[in-house]
Design a protein around this nucleic acid. Structure first.
Length: 489
RNA sequence: GGCCCCAUCGUCUAGUGGACUAGGACGGCGGCCUUUCAAGCCGCAAACACGGAUUCGAAUUCCGUUGGGGCCA
């Protein structure tokens, strides 16, 4: 089995394309076959600079590796279509020699006019095959000078049937398929020609592609036939839709893997989620590692109906994967993430030990890696806050001030600054002060972290350390006294 | 507009003629837990698009309608 992922570098690694890449890869890895990447860069006008690198990087990030393709080469190199033009010309030439393709000299103006007339007459819109009828002499007469394209001579009647692995038998009326272009006037091949030639040359056995290509399948089948080649097995995968049920695109917000990476999603969550868009194993299994997916994946269980991309479930799955990370792995993931995408709150830190100690306190509070910076910022900088937030519900400033003083004294006198000791000291103190635990801890939470929402207090104080904790309380004391002095009552 | 594909809770899906009072997950709602925020646990609501036909029996087969999507223009 040999399969491929054939992206056009006309944009970033779109989620739909990457899902297709993933299915191809899963199939190959599960069958011990080969997976290759081929860059379909023949549409020169739409090339986007950096798109190839971004797409390859997305694959690497997700753990999708390729046996042949850019970077690694392979015995069918080159893997860029723009470097295989000779091949397409030769192939088109062969078809012309065999009378299965022909040059067309119709001008864009004529074609446009033709279509307008067809539309007005409510006829089927398509090339009228005028140049197909040209005699050898007529062709020779136009050969030089006149810009031309090469068109495929489609059968004029009958049907073309595709046996699709996920859709079953699909038939198309040949008369409704016009003589499509093989080579454009600029000498570049169309998608149809290049795709078929390369898939054959590269010995692709299974073509898994999105359903949007289903309408071009009969053209491809006829091309294979004209060349005398055996077509591959086709599987048209359900398309991925945006929540508004239209094709997922940029205007729906994030649509590329790169963007999800930047939003703090884990590659394993992304892979797992994408795999479940259009495929399922059974009625209950939701979690799959890459290895499990490779074992479980099969084309038989690919669904036919389009799947709406629901990011809520991705968010949940991501949080789930974050919680399954070891403390050390989460710490590393965060440091890596911040290095690549520096947070707004503080400069990217490097202290892996510190992060490993804070990781268990934040991991069930994270849905994405991006959620971490606001929660742990107090470790890396002094967080400014308004002194009034120290004062908890049903407390006044004097009470808060007193609570801070007492807590300062108790914590300062503690022989060991660990979470259990801190808790053992502070809970009784709350009672002594006539406060609920939540009130006292609320004051101290703001004092210690500058945040109203923060990780659990006792452990946080332990990670912060005695000196920084006491200094933060002293600071809060100063702030609150100054604040009380200017707000009478 | 033409061609093609699709149709189970809001979403992802299980379901291939009887075990379906239609299962799971996300999300929603309610509760428990609780030191803020989460996480976790428990519970509830929520779907077979519609109409015919076949059959003793249909979510499951066939036909049509409607709806959605894709491709081409």
């Amino acid at each position: 089995m040999r399969v491929r992922f054939a992206p056009s570098p006309t944009g970033g690694p779109h989620l739909g394309n990457i899902r297709t890449a993933l299915f191809n890869w899963l199939l190959a890895r599960g069958a011990g076959g080969a997976f290759m990447v081929r860059i379909e860069d023949t549409d020169q006008a739409r090339l986007v600079h950096g798109a190839v690198d971004e797409t390859l990087e997305a694959l690497r990030w997700l753990g999708i590796d390729w046996d042949e393709g850019p970077d690694v080469g392979g015995r069918h190199a080159p893997y860029y279509q723009s470097q295989r033009l000779d091949r397409y010309h030769a192939a088109a030439g062969n078809l012309m020699d065999a009378g299965k393709a022909y040059p067309c000299y119709c001008t864009p103006e004529r074609l446009q006019q033709m279509r307008a007339e067809q539309a007005r007459g409510k006829q089927h819109v398509g090339y009228d095959r005028r140049c197909r009828a040209l005699t050898a002499e007529e062709r020779r007469a136009r050969q030089d000078g006149a810009p031309s394209v090469v068109r495929f001579a489609m059968p004029k009647d009958g049907t073309t049937s595709l046996k699709d692995v996920v859709r079953g038998c699909v038939s198309f009326e040949n008369e409704l398929i016009d003589d499509f272009v093989l080579l454009k006037s600029d000498g570049f091949p169309t998608y149809h020609l290049a795709n078929v030639v390369d898939d054959h040359d590269m010995e692709i056995s299974h073509v898994l592609r999105a359903e949007e290509w289903l309408p071009s399948a009969p053209r491809h089948l006829r091309l294979y036939e004209a060349f005398g080649w055996t077509p591959p097995v086709f599987a048209h995968l359900p398309i991925i839709l945006a929540p508004d049920r239209s094709k997922l695109s940029k205007r729906h917000g994030a649509a590329t893997v790169t963007e999800y990476r930047e939003m703090g999603y884990l590659p394993q969550a992304m892979t797992n989620f994408l795999a479940l868009l259009g495929w399922s194993l059974d009625d209950r299994t939701e979690e799959f590692s890459a290895d499990e997916l490779i074992k479980a994946f099969s084309l038989e269980r690919v669904s036919r109906s389009p799947a709406v991309f629901d990011s809520d479930k991705l968010v949940w799955l991501n949080g789930h994967y974050i919680r399954r990370l070891t403390h050390r792995d989460l710490a590393e993931a965060l440091l890596d993430f911040w290095r690549r995408y520096p947070p707004a709150e503080f400069p990217p830190p490097r202290d892996l030990d510190l992060m490993t100690r804070i990781a268990p306190l934040v991991r069930e509070r994270l849905k994405t890696l991006r959620d971490a910076a606001p929660l742990v910022q107090f470790l890396f900088k002094k967080v400014d806050y308004d002194p009034s937030v120290l004062v908890q519900k049903r407390m006044d400033e004097a009470g808060a001030l007193d609570a801070l003083k007492q807590a300062r004294a108790v914590l300062g006198a503690l022989p060991s600054h660990d979470a259990a000791s801190i808790e053992g000291a502070l809970r009784p103190l709350a009672g002594k002060l006539g406060l609920k635990a939540g009130q006292l801890l609320g004051v101290l939470r703001v004092a210690a972290t500058g945040l109203k929402v923060a990780p659990p207090l006792f452990e946080t104080m332990e990670v912060l350390g005695r000196d920084r904790t006491l200094a933060a309380i002293d600071d809060a004391l100063d702030k609150l006294s100054a604040y009380s002095a200017i707000t009478p009552g």
